[in-house]
Write a protein that binds this DNA or RNA. Structure first.
Length: 935
DNA sequence: CTAGAGCGCTCG
DNA sequence: GTACGAGCGCTCTAGC
């Protein structure tokens, strides 16, 4: 092989992670000017890499080079020893988004960039070093990590780039007191507190080297441990033998990995100054960009001081007309490849998929649209069928009009998975789930829906039609015009492709233009961190949870449904008997007429539409006055609700392929940052009544597994105590007191041990009332007490906790002044009606008081959810559901305990390190074969 | 026949 | 006229 690796070759292996951390800590927290993206570590990394490349001249220059990275997540060493590196604090928040960028940077320098799942960088370095040495070449490992010293010798040396100091065999002996071949033995004995390698207690490097030199190697030492004179040392080596042997396995690097690339692939390549410069310019590194340009005699792109992508008024996307005729119908491979190349060259592309329906778990892909420039877009049909009533297509196969699916995926997959091409979607979760089913894992992404949510929550909804009309002044083609409505509606695969091109490509065009508008606004509105840390990373987590789904037992639901039907029939007969005639019990209107006209019960109140109110509170009052009919109706309604909404409707949502129910979370569903769950809503499964709670028995774990439920205890009250800074409440939480009883005790001067349940109930209602923006009227209605009395309670509460009133007043004042409120994590919830007059003012003020509390709680559980997948990686556990303050997992029984502990730790620590709360977050946990048992 | 409003009930 | 935040099933009516 003429380009093979062999004698005379010189391989450089750069420890990429070491570079990153050194760069991160050496530089202040720089951010990219245009959008606030944290970029300090990338800047330092690029500087170091640039300096490295420049220094690489002369006879000793490498012939082959690679930067090696750690794969995020756990390595095979964690399966040997779960505490391995457990002491390591998680990477700083602002460093995390920079990891992938350092990979992109490496490639921009035209240097090979390698990482392997389940292995540490050290193992890859070890394997490559051995291969290179065996081939007769030389190796320089650029790192100062002492763990790599075991590799030195036989043509392998280390280079500490900072001190510019070479470490050869003598250097290793100087450091460890033994040669490289015995370094692992010394490390096994000495242990490593940083990586949490236990070693032999009481033995350090010096002693270890002494022992190894005396006995030759570790195995001999352990076998002959009895001979050691010092009693303490002898005892340790005998007793801790297992631990020492484990330590050796932990520090021993894997020289024998199977790699999907070879040494030849690492050959030094000629620099590509343009590529590099474009990357540097995109990162907005002015100095380095200029230097590269000068060194290569090319022109540096202008990096604007103003945010990029801010259209000037003359060329604002909204001002460019939408021209459906300009969109391209892609029907041959060459055109498709041209679009893929355009996307790669730009570094971003707006993508939209068309499917046969709305259920991502079921539907088929019909087409894909791309756009890389406003006004330019294409539609790539892949699944259109011959329409029933048109003759647009010549043949059933349509080979003239659309490319085969495998060709389209073949070309697009590398782009969709290319980490240096940003894929822009409107509601990425939907498209990514579809594409996942076709074997494509899309990353990285931006999402205009989430951008809008971070920017505009509370102002409007975030659907594409609304956004387009509002921000682009353009009304998109309604899908109805293509599909029709109701019974006669068709699916998208039956839409003639000529029409589909205009509709679908327009969506990609709109998405791109919205992105150009929104992305720079992120920084201006100071919600970059919200988007980057609370919105964008959550989307794939939700997608995964939705795809897992939860197993629901149809028979259980079916049996319950029958039982409910029987009881309802009996009640219905009784109700008709009492009414004296037959009527629809499910009709509030008819019921009102029966009660207040025909039976002439007093006190009927008509609502806005002129109908009598017949809500549960009204019927309960009547029932307590001794009326039987309303009491029966209440029973009937409870059963009716359970049957129609739960036992019946839920069955229709069981996916025939998976036997599971796959809800859909709407990330932008609630203004406060909470999620909403739809199709079906699994966030309102009954729990408060015994009969309703039994519905949860139908939510089951798969065989051999259990469901685990963990929920935050009183999280909103804890956040209130924190935000309003109420020392008495904070202390009560720190002391683990019953917070409602404690409130009652303070308010009514009742000692805790003499507390009655009635007094506690009232205090609990007040506590909740505070969170909701309390009013005398509301509390009175909730507690069913006179309004004056309720007002007395509130007054007394404010007297005892004046800080709460101050917090409420300040929050309202802030909202009126700024027209938004904020969570502790910076999420903005806009309050456009806060200065309105009339009843709307009251609504807006209460919402303003509630939103920061509810929203902060929502942010905290989001942070836990985002971290969770990495924390439970490798364990037989899946996160399935979120119910506002609760997470539900499905776990193999044997791992239930471990997963519970991990999830609890993650949830209780989810505010950190951004927020240091004065109150502890407490998580309660349960497990069982079904959701009723687990909760 | 279909879409949308209103009511009522479920959850945190 | 009022507790905060959600979704969904049913009835009823307006309009094609």
């Amino acid at each position: 092989m003429e380009t093979g690796f062999g004698k005379g070759c010189h391989l450089h292996l750069i420890d990429g992670s070491a570079f990153i951390f050194r760069a991160y800590h050496a530089l202040p927290p720089l951010t990219r000017k245009s959008d606030g993206l944290p970029i300090g570590a990338v800047a330092g990394f690029c500087n170091m890499l640039h300096r490295y490349v420049e220094g690489n001249t002369g006879p000793d220059a490498p012939t082959h080079v690679a930067v090696i990275f750690d794969y995020s997540g756990k390595s095979f060493r964690n399966t040997m020893y779960d505490q391995y590196k457990a002491n390591r604090p998680p990477a700083p928040e602002d460093l995390v988004p920079q990891f992938p960028l350092t990979r992109v940077a490496t490639k921009a320098f035209n240097i090979a960039c390698k990482e392997v799942e389940g292995f540490e960088a050290d193992d890859i370095i070890a394997t490559l070093s051995c291969q290179a040495r065996d081939a007769g070449g030389r190796v320089t490992i650029i790192s100062s990590d002492k763990d790599l010293m075991q590799l030195v010798g036989g043509g392998v040396e280390m280079l500490d780039a900072m001190k510019n100091k070479r470490i050869d065999r003598d250097g290793v002996i100087e450091k460890f007191g033994v040669g490289p071949e015995r370094v692992v033995d010394v490390q096994a004995l000495a242990g490593d507190s940083v990586d949490n390698v236990p070693g032999a207690p009481g033995i350090g490097i010096k002693t270890a080297a002494l022992l190894i030199n005396e006995y030759g190697d570790l195995e001999s030492l352990l076998d002959r441990a009895e001979e050691i004179k010092q009693p303490k040392r002898r005892q340790t080596l005998i007793e801790k033998r297992d631990q020492i042997e484990l330590s050796k396995r932990l520090v021993q690097l894997d020289c024998d990995m199977t790699l999907d690339f070879s040494l030849e692939d690492l050959e030094v390549k000629d620099p590509e100054p343009e590529t590099l410069m474009n990357f540097l310019a995109e990162m907005e590194f002015r100095t380095l960009t200029k230097r590269i340009a000068e060194q290569n005699g090319i022109e540096a792109p202008v990096i604007p001081d103003a945010p990029v992508n801010v259209p000037t008024s003359a060329e604002a996307p909204a001002d460019q007309p939408f021209d459906p005729e300009a969109y391209e119908w892609v029907k041959d491979r060459a055109s498709l490849e041209a679009w893929a190349a355009k996307a790669v060259a730009k570094g971003y592309v707006a993508v939209d998929t068309e499917t046969t329906g709305l259920d991502e778990m079921v539907v088929d892909l019909v087409g894909v649209c791309l756009s890389v420039e406003a006004g330019e877009a294409c539609y790539i049909p892949v699944g259109h069928k011959k329409g029933s009533s048109d003759d647009l297509f010549g043949s059933e196969e349509l080979d003239e009009n659309q490319l085969p699916l495998d060709v389209v995926l073949d070309v697009l997959k590398p782009v969709l998975e290319n980490e240096s091409v940003l894929k822009i979607f409107q509601n990425a979760k939907y498209d990514c789930k579809i594409l996942k089913r076709y074997g494509v894992t899309v990353a990285p992404i931006d999402d205009t829906m989430l951008l809008s949510y971070a920017l505009h929550s509370g102002i409007h909804n975030h659907g594409m039609d609304a956004l387009s009309e509002r921000y682009l002044n353009h009304q998109p083609i309604p899908i109805k015009t293509l599909l029709g409505t109701g019974k006669s509606a068709i699916t998208f695969d039956r839409v003639p492709i000529v029409d589909a091109v205009k509709y679908a490509a327009e969506d990609a065009d709109i998405t791109l233009r919205l992105w150009q508008k929104f992305k720079p606004k992120l920084h201006q509105e100071k919600v970059t961190t919200v988007y980057e840390t609370l919105e964008r990373p959550l989307s794939p987590v939700l997608a995964q949870m939705e795809m897992h789904g939860i197993k629901v037992d149809r028979d259980t639901l079916s049996r319950m449904s029958n039982a409910f039907a029987q009881k309802m029939a009996a009640l219905e007969a009784e109700i008709h008997e009492l009414a004296g005639r037959s009527f629809n019990v499910g009709s509030p209107k008819q019921l009102g007429e029966i009660l207040f006209d025909e039976m002439a019960i007093e006190g009927g109140k008509k609502g806005k539409t002129g109908a009598y109110a017949t809500g549960a509170d009204v019927l309960e009052d009547l029932a307590s006055q001794g009326h039987d009919l309303p009491a029966r109706v209440l029973d009937w309604r409870q059963l009716s609700k359970l049957k129609s909404t739960y036992t019946d409707a839920l069955q229709d949502h069981i996916n025939p392929d998976t036997g599971r129910v796959h809800t859909s979370y709407v990330q932008t569903g609630a203004n406060t940052g909470r999620l909403a769950s739809t199709d079906p809503n699994l966030q309102n499964i009954p729990v408060r009544t015994e009969e309703g709670r039994r519905i949860r028995e139908a939510f089951v774990a798969d065989e051999g597994k259990v469901l685990i439920s963990l929920d935050y205890s009183q999280i909103e009250l804890r956040i209130l105590a924190q935000m309003a800074d109420i020392e008495a409440l904070k202390q009560a939480f720190r002391d683990g007191l019953d917070i409602h009883a404690m409130t009652a005790s303070e308010m009514f001067d009742v000692p805790m041990d003499e507390m009655t349940s009635e007094v506690r109930r009232r205090a609990k209602a007040i506590n909740f009332g505070v969170i909701y923006g309390i009013s005398g009227f509301g509390l009175a209605r909730n507690l069913r007490i006179p309004r004056g009395e309720a007002q007395d309670f509130i007054n007394r509460y404010f007297e005892r906790f004046p800080g709460i009133r101050t917090y409420m007043d300040e929050t309202k004042a802030f909202a009126k002044e700024n027209l938004f409120v904020q969570t502790l994590f910076g999420r903005k919830i806009h309050m456009p009606e806060i200065n309105a007059k009339g009843p709307r003012a009251g609504f807006a003020q209460r919402a303003a008081i509630n939103a920061p509390i509810q929203g902060t709680a929502a942010d905290i559980i989001r942070r836990a959810m985002i971290r969770m997948p990495a924390e439970i990686a490798g364990l037989p556990a899946k996160m399935l559901l979120q119910v506002h303050d609760e997470l539900i997992f499905e776990v193999e029984e044997s791992a239930a305990q471990e997963v519970t502990e991990i999830a609890r730790r993650v949830m209780e620590g989810a505010a950190e390190p951004v927020l240091k709360l004065d109150v502890p977050l407490v998580v309660d946990a349960g497990q069982g074969a079904n959701w009723a048992e687990a909760h």
